[in-house]
Structures are given as C-alpha cells and as structure tokens.
Write a protein that binds this DNA or RNA. Structure first.
Lengths: 136, 136
DNA sequence: GTCGTTGCAAACGGTTTGCACCGTC
DNA sequence: GACGGTGCAAACCGTTTGCAACGAC
C-alpha cells in the first residue's frame, strides 16, 4: 500500500490535508478546491484531485466512493459508516459500531479475498425531512 | 414512488427488462446496451439509459450506485448486499441476511428519515485473488 | 389523434492527463 | 541538480438532454 519513494511535502499537499482534517463534513474534490484556495489562490483543481487520490492510496485520507456521482473525502480513516441525504446529497458520519463478522462471513460465502466493507444508510436528513413533511 | 401515468410497454422496454432478468450478473448500462442490441440492433444507448433509470424509479429494477464510476443494474429488487472486485470491477451478490436494526438505529442516532441501506464488501474475487497470489 | 417514447447527436459534469515549468529533497 | 509536483488546458468517459419523427394507447 505504501509506495517506495515517500511523498514530498509540498505546501499544496499540506494545506489540503490540514483543511480536510479541520472539517467534519465530507467534502467533494471541488469543495476542497474552494477551501484550499483561501490559502493558496493559485492552486489548480487538478492538483487537488491528484493529491486527494494520492493520499487516499497512501491511507492518509479516506475516499468515500459510495453512491452519488461525486466522490467525497474524509480526514478520518478509521472504519465508520455513512448516511447520505437523497435530497441534498449531504453525507454524515453514522456513529455506530461496525458490524462484526461481515467480512469473515462474506469471505467464506464468496471465496473473495476481502479487504474492507462499507455501509451506507440513505434517506432524508433532518433538514430535508422537515421540508418534505410540510410540502406533502 | 409510482408515477400517475403508467409506463407504455414498448418493445425496447420489454427487451431490456427481459435481458436484465435473464442474467445474474450486474450489468452496466453499456453492457445492457450490447445485450439488448442482439434483439434490437437499432436501439440507442440513450434509450437504454432512460429505461433503466425509469424502471429503477418505478422499483422494477435495482440501480446499484455504490462505488466505482459506472452504475450497475440488478433485476432482483429485494434487499441484498454486494461484493465488488477491486481488480476487475465485477459485482456479485452476497448471500447474507440483511443486518437487522441498522436502519432503526441509524434513524435514532442521526434524526434522518431512513429509507434504505446498502452494504458493499470489497476485495479480490476468486479469479483475481489467484492471479495476485502468483505474481506477488 | 395524443402524448409518451425513440434514435441521434450534441452537451454535460466530474475526473484524468500531457506538458513545460517549478521547488523539494 | 534530479526528479517529483504543479498549473493549465485539453481530453476523457459515463451519463443526460433537446429535438423531430414514431408508435402505444
């Protein structure tokens, strides 16, 4: 998983990581781009993509590639589940114990060499749920 | 969820549904396009997309929008989990009991109005796992 | 005959990539 | 100074959409 040559610590990389770790939301690449531009106005979107991708490969950040067209990123790399609002697209952490044994059970049932699992609960976030009840 | 005016049963729609139900794999839209073209050589990719989207809204088929860049479709609409191979991208059914209580627990913890949940186990499928062990 | 559906092609949106220059090690 | 990283812009690829013709009801 870790590459042979270590990543150079450029200021772009540093700011991206700091910014991502400073929020509890799960920004998309272009949301990260907007955040990082406050410190580095000349950074390019390509650099943001490259670094988020690279750091997720290194296990420094988590790529949330689950539902929806845009990928999202998370500074918290420990296994945890997510909630996604079907109306506004927002993603929250689900503070729940990871289900025990799924990976082992899946490996036995399928013959896969299991590496991780993810669980996503979908519905309406409190804000969107409220709106919806009113209009219906 | 169901629309007011019923869907017209065009031959395109019929063939797409038949083909999807006849396989146990989880085809992408363009794989469906190739399959359907055997019966309807003049069908367009746009029609395939439109119908898969429409039928998934109607609950006739299942859209698997979880991980990976392409969406996949499933003729089996009952709640079930999936396995995804990180090497070849193939998706298999995970024949496992859905985890009880996740949705209720998530609703309580988060205040979301929960509608569904999905779980995806990722790793290497038996074929890719074998190749990988040899080369490493 | 109406109006939902189709085929076509062009547009879209998120992401990736080639390239010449730049800055970390 | 080497070589990995950057900014920029163009390319990519899956998907969506506008439109005129078509066909299910």
């Amino acid at each position: 998983m870790l590459s042979d040559t270590p990543m150079r610590m450029t200021k772009q990389r540093k700011v991206i990581l700091e910014r991502l770790r400073s929020v509890t939301s799960h920004p998309t690449a272009d949301e990260m781009y907007e955040m990082v531009r406050q410190d580095l106005p000349k950074i390019s979107l390509g650099t943001v993509y490259r670094n988020l991708e690279l750091m997720s490969e290194e296990g420094v950040v988590l790529k949330i590639d689950v539902g929806g067209s845009k990928k999202r990123f998370d500074g918290n790399t420990s296994t945890h589940y997510h909630l996604r609002c079907l109306n506004c697209g927002r993603v929250d952490d689900l503070h729940m114990e990871p289900v025990k044994g799924v990976e082992a059970e899946a490996a036995i049932l399928s013959g896969y060499q299991v590496m991780t699992h993810s669980l996503e609960v979908r519905g309406l976030c409190p804000a969107c749920g409220k709106k919806n009840t009113k209009s219906n």
